[in-house]
């Protein structure tokens, strides 16, 4: 039984692509057969974050237009043989693909993969519509900032209107020191406002920058962000994992734990 998950946010720069790369790699580490699809036509990035940019021959638009077979365009990951990437086209625009074409493509891929993960472009235009067309569930990525949360709220409304079965929230780039000082909204605050299930919180971790530089997702390593992403992967597969202690403060940990129980 395969699941199609769209990773979306509305606002750009909150960590959709990083999340897609890490969640995809993490699920592959848990022995799932995973394909990542970059649906950001014209601004492709998932390939560089995955470190696979030098292997691209065909892309999503080629597949959709029938210039090549699906198998020819899939790029096997360098570390996990059960992880694949379908890159986006860099030289085309969003209108090169339609929601119907995406649905058809995803239906074909369902047979071969446990998880199909779609990296959605920022915005709510055609690219967004393409990305959510064939999705079963969505993971909404936001940061604890007013602009990102406002956009996330808009996205949630649009996804509800499109009758997605399930929506989960990742609060990304949390800085516990700022939350403690009261200068950043807490996970509680964000969940309170957006009122959807929290599937994980990821701290603002400089290791993310390093891993992106190297083109190797950090999920599963010893960094806080690496652990947080792996926990998210466990939760995606349905396992219950307590929320990670992102700060040293025990009170906050208790708060997080109780928060997760609530949902």
């Amino acid at each position: 039984m395969s699941e199609v998950i769209v990773i979306t946010s509305g606002k750009g720069g909150v960590g959709k692509t990083t999340t897609t790369a890490n969640v995809g790699t993490g699920l592959a580490m848990l022995n799932k057969k995973v394909i990542l699809i970059d649906t950001d036509i014209g601004l492709r990035n998932l390939d560089v974050v995955m470190g696979l940019e030098n292997r691209i021959v065909y892309n999503l638009v080629d597949v959709v237009e029938g210039s090549c077979r699906i198998k020819q365009a899939l790029i096997k990951d360098k570390r996990y043989p059960n992880l694949y990437l379908l890159p986006s086209a860099q030289t085309r625009d969003k209108t090169s693909v339609s929601p119907e074409q995406m649905k058809k493509l995803i239906e074909e891929l369902r047979e071969d993969f446990d998880y199909i993960i779609l990296d959605c472009p920022a915005g709510i235009e055609q690219g967004f519509k393409n990305a959510i067309a064939g999705a079963d569930r969505a993971i909404i990525v936001t940061t604890p900032e007013v602009s990102a949360i406002r956009d996330a709220d808009r996205i949630i409304g649009l996804l509800e209107a499109n009758e997605l079965k399930r929506m989960d929230l990742i609060v990304n780039r949390l800085r516990m020191d700022m939350v403690k000082r009261g200068d950043m909204m807490s996970i509680d605050d964000v969940v309170d406002i957006l009122a959807i299930n929290l599937i994980g919180a990821v701290p603002d971790d400089e290791n993310i920058v390093i891993s992106t530089n190297q083109g190797e997702p950090l999920v599963g390593n010893d960094s806080l962000a690496g652990k947080a992403f792996l926990n998210i992967c466990y939760r995606i597969t349905g396992e219950e994992v307590p929320l990670l202690n992102l700060g040293e403060n025990n009170n906050i940990w208790n708060k997080l734990a109780s928060l997760f129980k609530k949902n």
Binding site: V146, R150, G182, S186, I193
Partner: peptide
């Protein structure tokens, strides 16, 4: 705190 201000502003918005 600015976090609370943000939350209140967002709620209204």
């Amino acid at each position: 705190s600015s976090g609370d201000v943000a939350k209140d502003r967002l709620k209204l918005l």
